[in-house]
Computed example of a mutant assay.
Amino acid sequence: MEGTKKIVLLGQFGVGKTSLLRRFMTNVFEVDYKTTLGVQIKKKEITLPSGKKLSMIIWDLEGFSSVSNTRTSYLIGSDGFIYVFDLTRPVTYFNLREEIDYIEKNYPNVCLKIIGNKNDLKDSSSIEEYLANKNLKVHGFCSAKTGEGVEEIFRHIAFKIGSNE
């Protein structure tokens, strides 16, 4: 093993963080929804474009109404954050600017990716425009249900933080 990186999934309750992680780890989607309590930690090894191996330690946190309510101990030592919002629930992205400002202020050296989930249920173009007007760049849209874009999201952040060694 050449490197280990901690990646934390952030976002409100019910946005699909656990489903995204399950899809990435096992390529499975389960329709029965189980609420994450506290934190669930998974490990997956991938090969970077350089040929080096990277062990991703992925922390799937319970959903909070605001990232500022997340236990600091869960976030300390993170190399990457994937902030997930739900394309079908505006409440999960209306305050996204404030959420991202908080993360960037308190964790300025942590790689951050903003992801819209459930694109199998809603067109993302109007939401992307809304967020662009808030000076936010979404790094990808995906669907834990269909698997579209999931692998790419995790690999992209792994490649980004893995190349910083």
Rank of each mutant, 00 (worst) to 15 (best):
M1W: 11
K5Q: 13
G11H: 13
F13S: 09
F13Y: 14
G14A: 14
V15A: 04
G16W: 10
K17T: 02
L20Y: 01
R22V: 00
R22M: 11
M25Y: 11
T26E: 14
T26C: 06
V28R: 13
F29W: 08
F29G: 01
E30L: 09
V31F: 05
V31C: 04
V31A: 09
Y33V: 02
K34S: 09
K34E: 11
K34Y: 11
T35G: 01
G38I: 06
V39M: 10
V39N: 09
Q40G: 05
Q40R: 15
I41H: 12
I41K: 09
K42M: 10
K42H: 14
K42R: 13
K42C: 12
K43P: 00
K44H: 04
K44Q: 10
E45K: 14
I46Q: 08
P49G: 13
S50Y: 13
S50C: 10
S50E: 02
G51Q: 00
K53T: 07
L54N: 04
S55G: 10
I57D: 01
I57N: 08
I58F: 04
I58K: 12
I58S: 01
I58P: 06
I58L: 06
W59L: 08
D60E: 02
L61S: 09
E62R: 12
E62Q: 11
T70E: 08
T72Y: 09
T72S: 12
S73Y: 15
Y74W: 09
Y74G: 03
I76Q: 15
I76M: 13
G77K: 04
Y83V: 01
Y83N: 05
Y83H: 04
Y83T: 00
F85R: 00
D86P: 07
L87F: 05
P90F: 07
P90S: 05
P90R: 13
V91Q: 13
F94G: 03
R97I: 07
R97M: 10
R97P: 03
E98T: 03
I100A: 01
D101N: 15
D101T: 15
Y102T: 06
I103A: 02
P108K: 07
P108R: 07
C111Q: 14
C111W: 10
L112Q: 08
L112F: 07
L112A: 08
K118S: 02
K118A: 01
N119P: 00
N119H: 11
L121E: 12
K122N: 12
S124A: 15
S126F: 13
S126D: 15
I127V: 12
E128Y: 11
Y130H: 09
Y130F: 15
A132V: 03
K134S: 11
N135Y: 12
N135Q: 13
L136A: 08
L136V: 08
L136T: 12
K137Y: 12
K137Q: 11
V138M: 02
G140W: 14
G140I: 02
F141C: 05
C142N: 09
C142M: 13
S143T: 00
A144G: 10
A144N: 10
T146E: 06
G147N: 05
G147L: 03
E148T: 07
V150R: 10
V150I: 03
V150M: 01
E152C: 09
E152P: 00
I153G: 06
I153C: 08
R155G: 06
H156E: 15
H156W: 14
I157G: 08
I161G: 03
I161N: 05
G162C: 01
N164P: 00
E165S: 14
E165H: 14
